[in-house]
Amino acid sequence: MKITATSLSLVAALATFGTGTLAQDLPGPVKARQGQFNILAINLGILGDMARGKTDYDADTAQAAADTLVAVSMINQAPLFPEGTSEMEIDGTRAKAEIWDDWDGFAEKWSGLGEAAAGLQQVAATGQEALGPAVGQLGGACKACHDSFRAPE
């Protein structure tokens, strides 16, 4: 009986240890924030491929993609970045501890994304030539934040 109790607690301990390391078991807020970045990437892909001439330009599709970028940029980030979810604390994220050390700086970078997305929204339907520079601006906003707040792979 004693042995069983010990083994059970060992199994429990192993299970707890395991949770943190499996990507599919990430905390809800982490999954949500990664999901929003995926939505950004998908819609940037639509616009970027048109800008590069890899796909044909279509004003409605471009506008819908740019509107989506603006919509994502309006999501409040605070609930998606709770304390204890930096790359130092859990596996499966590249969010650096600096986000929490300098939340104002992080929030400022996020509003930089909003500004760049709004710029894209203005010009997305005006023609293929306008996309390149506007997508470039948005890329600048991504990098500006990743420079300080995202760890390398």
């Binding site: 990437a41 940037l44 970027g48 997508v135 600048g140 991504c142 990098k143 420079d147 760890a151 792979e153």
Partner: peptide
């Protein structure tokens, strides 16, 4: 295109020291 914008072919965006290189 990556060196110009920081976007990978999947439209992920560069991180770490590579950001400075792309700038």
């Amino acid at each position: 295109y990556y060196l110009e914008t920081g976007f990978t072919p999947d439209y992920d965006s560069a991180g770490g020291h590579m950001v400075a290189v792309i700038d």
